[in-house]
Design a protein around this nucleic acid. Sequence first.
DNA 1: CGGTTGACATACGCGGCGTATGTCCCGAGA
DNA 2: TCTCGGGACATACGCCGCGTATGTCAACCG
Lengths: 198, 198
Amino acid sequence: MATGRRAKMMEETRAKLIRAARKAFAEKGYAAASMDELTAEAGLTRGALYHNFGDKKGLLRAVIDEIDAEMAEGARAARDRAETPWQGFIEEGVAYIEMALEPEIQRIMLLDGPAVLGDPAQWPGQNACLRTTTATIQALIEERTVRPVDAEAAARLVNGAALNAALWVAASDDPRAVLVKAIEAFRFLASGLLRERG
Amino acid sequence: MATGRRAKMMEETRAKLIRAARKAFAEKGYAAASMDELTAEAGLTRGALYHNFGDKKGLLRAVIDEIDAEMAEGARAARDRAETPWQGFIEEGVAYIEMALEPEIQRIMLLDGPAVLGDPAQWPGQNACLRTTTATIQALIEERTVRPVDAEAAARLVNGAALNAALWVAASDDPRAVLVKAIEAFRFLASGLLRERG
DNA sequence: CGGTTGACATACGCGGCGTATGTCCCGAGA
DNA sequence: TCTCGGGACATACGCCGCGTATGTCAACCG
């Protein structure tokens, strides 16, 4: 598969733009981020941007795709570290809360993303986060650990709770202390899905 | 307290602007809503707007304050209709989900609001929604119905779950059917807070 | 009744997005 | 090797929207 030099440079250009965009969007927010400054930061101009991504929203979509994949991977890793499927589910949720402490994820994935692109479930990458959580819950239902419930519904609520918790933690004065409370509350809530209390 | 004619007109002007803003923000979103069109719709100009609200964000703050108060009132009404405190808590959550089905609330309170003004807990009206939920949970803890947990943390997660559920429902093809699933999942999750299962 | 204040309208400048147009270089074919 | 077409990116332009500075007119006050 001879990926000629042209295609190679193209990918490099896209990568540079996405890198600069992640930085700018995270620091200034989507609305306040200037395309001129952003592309200059990447050593390019707006021409490259509109050629590769169509428009400003297209760039945001690309950025979100990338971060979403990273988050899903992080969640998967957390789940794999656990001993039981249920523990894995909990760890996955905790991982989301902790990941969402990073300003970049907060600003881009939780605040600007939904506002600009609408409902996360209909995002380009189909939102890997939601899909993995849904699959996890579905497995737990089939395993008879979790009550028979609509897996997607549960995933939505659990994710929403986790991400909202993260927003709260990050905005607080003492994030570390508040994080503990958030995780505890999350465990309690999640336990409501159990068939019988452990 | 002689509210002179001036003050009276002032209030009327603010009300007209807020009314037009709710409509415009809900239909076009905050970013795409033009101040020129918005104020013209209200029979005024941008002069009135910047005089009364400072800037575009100021107008959004005022709009959010109003809607937040309405939502808190709706939640209170739902809670009061229930027979037990716990049922009241559940009904409050369900009410949030149902209210969030309105496009106006989705767009303004759930999408643009957080993106433009940041964390809801630090909003002007201090977010009546969150405060009422926190108080409700605190009461349930003291009543020994709910496990000893940080009330604010629980309120945050529950609210987050409810509002996220609403986003999901509203974006779905068959909102009515999905709403049922969402409410069921919400009840399960919330039951995780109970000291012992009912 | 003249002066002052405040509510609102009008006028202007700056900046940002998107697009139309231009330029250059790579790669294919004769 | 020379040519030439197309793609990747840069440059130039127009439009729109926000915020502010300035203007105007009506309501209070002495």
